[in-house]
């Protein structure tokens, strides 16, 4: 059996603002098997980035993890002292961010910035750290790395900076790399380079990767497992094939149906009706119920748990529970409707 390098159980993170508590993450659970890639996918405001920051406890000062477990190789990171967390950050778990243009410090050279983690975690001398920085730049495919270590960030393009960020994250051979929308700010041909690089390095170094993105294409191409988030909660978690071929949650289905595809013809998009609920005014029952074509009174009254379906995948929906009263039969079609690589279509019939 494969071991899980990261297990998150029922994570809750809130922010305390002048207008009161904002429950940015309110029920997130997933597991990341060793050496695999987990995609956390969701739209803006779904809490996916806050989930990532919670793992490393890098929240803004008004944010706080209020409940849940984050188990890294079996040990719960919540409750670790700040000193102990610092030994993990950039070492066993490292992170890269969305904006390569602003994520590097403008007043230090590339070499200085990569060296820092090496000096801190591996106790290298300044000289050795700089030499290793050159190796790392070579590893991430930066041409003439000996010259580049002395460059300042402004002298590099966006794609190059993201490579530097990756080099920095890989400096101490992390077991987990958390990538928060690492290619969103990049052009598509550069995105392809960076995705390819992350995958190659993962194979070479045996890392596990948490990939946070809103792009379903990126998920399909890079991830082994997927957690779909909606309004601060994981609504579905399973392997990537199940998510794309037999999606369970009406939100996942809606998401796939509203995606315009460049690789095939579609007649009409089927959007999800309505808007994402306001974090300060969440629906009482299932958070997706106001937009869900299958919602019943039960859905509007009570929040479903994230629970295993018959195949062992997690889904947070009443349809798959014993409580479903069957007034409105909902049929979510599986594999047989996927013809010639077309998108997944779900029909909600009565």
């Amino acid at each position: 059996m494969e071991t899980n390098v990261l297990e998150v159980h029922n994570l809750r993170t809130s922010f305390y603002t002048d207008d009161g508590e904002v429950k940015a993450v309110d029920g997130v659970s997933f597991t990341l098997p060793k050496g695999k890639t987990l995609g956390i996918v969701g739209e803006s405001g779904s809490g996916k980035s806050i989930t990532a920051l919670s793992i490393l406890q890098l929240l803004a000062s008004n944010g706080k993890i209020i409940d849940g477990e984050i188990r890294f190789k079996g040990e719960n990171l919540i409750g670790y002292s700040d000193r102990k967390m610092r030994d993990i950050r950039g070492n066993a778990i490292s992170m890269i961010f969305q904006e390569p243009m602003t994520s590097l410090n403008p007043v230090f050279t590339i070499g200085q910035q990569i060296s820092e983690s090496l000096i801190k975690h591996q106790k290298l001398s300044k000289r050795d750290a700089l030499l290793k920085s050159v190796d790392l730049l070579k590893l991430v495919g930066i041409p003439s790395p000996e010259a580049r270590v002395r460059n300042y960030p402004y002298e590099l393009s966006g794609g190059m900076r993201q490579r530097v960020m990756i080099a920095m994250a890989l400096a101490c051979d992390p077991e987990i790399l958390i990538a928060d929308e690492p290619t969103t700010a990049l052009d598509v041909t550069i995105q392809a380079q960076i995705l390819q690089l992350i995958k190659e390095l993962q194979h070479r170094l045996g890392m596990s990767v948490v990939f946070i993105t809103h792009d379903l294409g990126v998920v399909a191409e890079t991830c082994d497992y997927v957690a779909v988030m909606y309004a601060g909660q994981v609504v579905e978690y399973s392997d990537v094939f199940t998510i794309f071929k037999e999606p369970k949650h009406p939100y996942t289905i809606g998401l796939l149906n509203s995606l315009p595809r460049h690789d095939m013809e579609q007649d009409k998009l089927e959007p999800i009706r309505g808007n994402v609920p306001n974090v300060r005014d969440m629906p009482i029952g299932c958070r997706f119920s106001p937009r869900c074509p299958a919602a019943t009174d039960l859905c509007r009254a009570e929040l479903p748990e994230l629970s295993k379906d018959d195949k062992g995948n997690d889904v947070r929906c009443w349809i798959y529970s014993d409580n479903w009263d069957g007034e409105m039969e909902v049929n979510v079609y599986g594999e047989k409707r996927i013809a010639q690589g077309r998108g997944v279509k779900a029909v909600f019939s009565d």
Binding site: T189, G217, V218, A220, E221, F241, F244
Partner: peptide, 24 residues
């Protein structure tokens, strides 16, 4: 190259990808 660089939202899709080197 542009078309081949776009990730396809289908995990069973086998694609070859013409990797463009360098920046614009």
């Amino acid at each position: 190259a542009l078309l081949s660089a776009i990730p396809v939202p289908d995990p069973t899709h086998k694609k070859t990808h013409i990797a463009l080197k360098g920046d614009v």
